[in-house]
């Protein structure tokens, strides 16, 4: 074998194309021939250096710029859908009925508000606190406020509370705080918007415990969208095995109920 052929063998070996017995042959040849030895050492060093080069970390601007772009695209898509729909003329009697229904509804809400003035006062206070917690540094304080938000007597009527909790789930850097937000949002899974927000959170969440809580919460209100998301998670082998197992368990449980 000439030196060029040895060079090819060494590369093939380092590429993982040759069997381990070849290493013995290469080592023996390198011991006998200085030129082959130099080739072997240099290639091994080059391959090691390639493996040692660290992954360059991306900066937050890249993610936030893409987030802004994506939001704009989604908004454009949504507005296209709206303008694409036909404008249907509503008959006058339907308009009157709608106004009447709204007035009855407002009267009912006003009446309920009167009865629950104290609760709402508390709720307003909780919402103010929730708004502020994204800026609070202590995770313990944040968790305390989130817990108060769903220990409240009638928080489910308040859209603001729900939205604030969704914001916490989306933005808070602490997994424990996000976990508390999932627990609180579990009270509202009959709300389509909340279910949608939980599905979105599950697709981007990195923390295993928060993921598990989201899977359990969504599993309790299983529907077509949730099934699709779950199937996507099971099929994606990059997800951790325990997550895929948990999702599979939920899918199996619901398939059994359906059959």
């Amino acid at each position: 074998m000439n030196i060029d052929q040895w060079e090819d063998k060494i590369i093939s070996y380092l590429e993982g194309d040759l069997e381990s017995v070849m290493k013995q042959e290469i080592t023996e040849a390198a011991n006998k021939n200085k030129e082959i030895e130099a080739l072997w050492i240099s290639y091994r060093s080059i391959y090691n250096t390639i493996d040692n080069i660290p992954t360059a970390e991306t900066c937050d601007t890249l993610k936030s710029n893409f987030g802004t772009f994506l939001k704009k695209e989604i908004d454009t898509q949504e507005s296209k859908k709206i303008t694409g729909n036909k404008v249907i003329a509503i008959p006058a009697w339907k308009k009157i009925m709608t106004i009447a229904a709204v007035l009855v509804g407002l009267l009912f809400i006003w009446n309920t508000n009167q009865n629950n003035q104290d609760i709402n006062n508390n709720l307003a206070e909780v919402n103010t606190q929730l708004e502020q917690i994204l800026d609070t540094k202590s995770s313990t304080e944040k968790i305390k406020v989130i817990r108060v938000s769903h220990d409240n007597q009638s928080p489910s009527n308040d859209e603001n509370t729900k939205q604030l909790l969704v914001n916490v789930l989306k933005k808070d850097p602490s997994s424990n705080v996000r976990l508390a937000a999932v627990e609180a949002l579990a009270n509202y899974t009959n709300d389509d918007k909340i279910r949608e927000a939980l599905i979105k959170a599950l697709m981007v969440e990195k923390d295993g415990f928060v993921k598990l809580a989201l899977i359990k919460t969504l599993g309790s209100q299983f529907d077509h969208d949730i099934a699709d998301t779950f199937e996507e998670i099971v099929n994606d082998k990059t997800n951790e095995k325990f997550i895929r197992d948990e999702v599979e368990k939920e899918l199996f449980r619901h398939n059994k109920i359906e059959s």
């Binding site: 970390e57 991306t58 994506l70 989604i74 981007v204």
Partner: peptide, 27 residues
């Protein structure tokens, strides 16, 4: 395939999964 079918919000998932690899290719 979901993105292809119009759910462009799902691009965020692909971004999280692949942006470091793509960035390193360019780097």
């Amino acid at each position: 395939l979901q993105i292809k079918n119009g759910e462009i919000g799902k691009t965020a998932v692909l971004f999280d999964r692949y942006h470091t690899s793509i960035y390193n290719y360019f780097m």
